Amino acid sequence: MKPSTTPRTAGRALPLLLAALLPLAGCGIPETGVVEAGEPATGVLDPGTAPSPSRAQPTPVPVAAVPLFFVEDGALVSVTRAVPGATDPGTVVLMLFKGPDEQERERGLTTELPLAVAAPTVRVDGASVTVLLPRGTGSLSDTAVDQLACTVAAARLRQDPVLDRA
């Protein structure tokens, strides 16, 4: 005759069964020992003390001179803008599409590029730069194409001075 299990006996056996199966349910990552990964952390403060401010002088952000080509009396004119930080051709193209600033407009500079609804996509491959205009941008006049080409070429040559052309 088979011994009968009562719900009470089964209730006690279940936790034992789960405890026995738990080591078998690992995630498959092998056990490792201590892994050396450099020097131990330093600078731990005692409880209740505040960190002191750094006495090091902040490093100034470099200013880059960025040439943009706008239009004055139908001819291209190079304007140099000073911008903080490094500039890549994509950033320069976006600046160009925003058009002349207030001072440049007062000087009579204009643009033939349309206002960009979205940022153009700029891809650089060696000396070659490809500018993909956002969908919905109308066709560009010859002067607008020249504005874009001259600005992109100047930006690429500033980015990589080793190039002799872009």
Rank of each mutant, 00 (worst) to 15 (best):
V79H: 02
K98W: 07
V77W: 08
R123D: 06
L133T: 15
S78V: 15
V77R: 15
A86F: 11
P84Y: 10
R107M: 13
P100S: 09
A154D: 07
E104Y: 09
A82C: 00
G74R: 15
G108F: 14
T111S: 15
L157P: 00
T91V: 08
D142C: 03
T137G: 11
S128V: 09
G136H: 05
D146A: 14
L94V: 01
R156V: 06
T80M: 15
L115E: 15
A118G: 11
L157G: 00
L140C: 06
R135V: 11
Q147M: 07
L94H: 07
D142N: 07
S78W: 10
R156N: 11
T80A: 13
P120I: 05
A144L: 05
D125S: 13
A86M: 10
V124D: 02
R123A: 11
P161W: 04
E112N: 12
F97W: 09
L157M: 09
V145D: 11
A154G: 01
T111V: 12
P114A: 07
G126N: 05
P120A: 08
T87V: 12
R158W: 01
P134D: 14
R135D: 14
G90Y: 04
A155T: 01
T121Q: 13
Q147E: 10
F70H: 07
R156W: 06
R123C: 00
V93W: 00
G136R: 08
A75I: 09
D88C: 01
R156L: 10
L68Y: 01
P67N: 04
D88I: 03
V93S: 01
L109S: 08
S141C: 03
G108Q: 14
A86S: 14
P114G: 09
A86N: 12
P67L: 03
R123K: 11
E72A: 15
Q103A: 15
P120N: 04
L68W: 01
L132C: 00
L148V: 02
V93L: 01
A155S: 08
V152R: 04
G99I: 03
L148Q: 02
D125T: 04
Q103D: 15
L68Q: 02
T111P: 05
Q103R: 14
L157F: 00
L148H: 03
L148M: 03
G138L: 11
V145G: 12
A144K: 06
R158M: 04
L148E: 00
Q159M: 07
V77E: 15
R156D: 04
L132I: 05
P89T: 04
S128E: 05
V129G: 09
V71H: 10
V122C: 02
V77I: 10
P161H: 10
